[in-house]
């Protein structure tokens, strides 16, 4: 049976969201960034807010996010995406604003901006992609790299004496009163991707309430930086990343009585 005949009595149940451009993504095969882009844009399409949303792209692998997301985008200086998003949200308070950042951007060079943005309780969404490595510059150690993880700047594995502990910035900011919704999700299996989509939807709904910052950490992979095949990264996430960065909501609105 040819596929055309088969398709006649079938309906399309899943396709590429129209809010993603047709550009070929530059990401490595199996990269979690691309999944995160796709899910973000799916939510934008489902909520019908394509014209009412402004995104801020970071420096890092996802620096070209504005080429793929068919919405208004702004590029920020390294680590300053949340600061740029603050300005955009204050000038255009009725728009949905999100900052999309990686771990080198948000947890290393942009720690101060991130913490102060959330401490001020700006009504933006910050999407934080945590893959525990600097993927763009050649696999150097990030603040979120795991203990014992081999990177190009820690060839014998990260050790506490020289490099300290992995920075759990999501746990840190969950304590700030300005944070309204803080959660940690992943994108390595179909179920976790579905939960991530739900979290983004919640975050955009909460942004309407103007009660504080929403923060979503996404535990992701980096096949090139970790020197693994995409299949092997799935096992690595399950065995190594998730015990260090357990999934789940760290702060939900019902608990802090806002």
């Amino acid at each position: 049976m040819s596929q055309e005949i088969l398709l006649e009595d079938m309906q399309c149940v899943y396709q590429k969201p129209a809010t993603l451009t047709d550009d070929y993504m530059h990401y490595c095969p199996g990269c979690g960034h691309a999944v995160a882009h796709k899910i973000l844009m799916e939510v934008v399409q489902e909520m019908g807010i394509q014209e009412d949303i402004v995104g801020v792209a970071p420096v890092g692998c996802s620096v070209f996010a504005y080429n793929y997301m068919n919405i208004d985008m702004q590029e920020a200086a390294h680590g300053r995406a949340s600061a740029a998003a603050t300005g955009i949200k204050r000038v255009l308070p009725e728009k949905y604003v999100f900052a999309y950042q990686g771990d080198g951007d948000l947890a290393a060079i942009g720690t101060a901006e991130t913490i102060h943005t959330i401490n001020r309780g700006e009504n933006i969404l910050i999407v934080f992609i945590n893959n525990g490595i600097y993927g763009m510059t050649g696999g150097q150690m990030a603040p979120t790299s795991l203990l014992g993880q081999k990177t190009s700047t820690s060839p014998y594995g990260r050790d506490v004496e020289h490099n300290g502990y992995p920075l759990k910035i999501t746990d840190l900011i969950a304590h700030l009163p300005g944070a309204y919704y803080v959660t940690r999700q992943a994108v390595h299996t179909p179920n976790t991707v579905r939960k991530f989509k739900k979290a983004i939807k919640n975050a955009f709904e909460f942004q309407k309430l103007k009660k504080g910052t929403c923060f979503i950490e996404v535990v992701s992979n980096c096949p090139s930086g970790w020197k693994m095949t995409p299949k092997e990264t799935l096992a690595y996430i399950e065995e190594k990343m998730l015990p260090e960065y357990p999934l789940g909501d760290l702060k939900v609105p019902t608990q802090n009585n806002n």
């Binding site: 899943y14 990269c31 691309a34 796709k38």
Partner: peptide, 24 residues
Amino acid sequence: TGCTNCAIVCPDSAITVYRQSKQN
């Protein structure tokens, strides 16, 4: 079976899924 699992995890949005409708 058209469960869409493959398309959901596809980083490059290369998969479109079709499923038989319940009436058919």
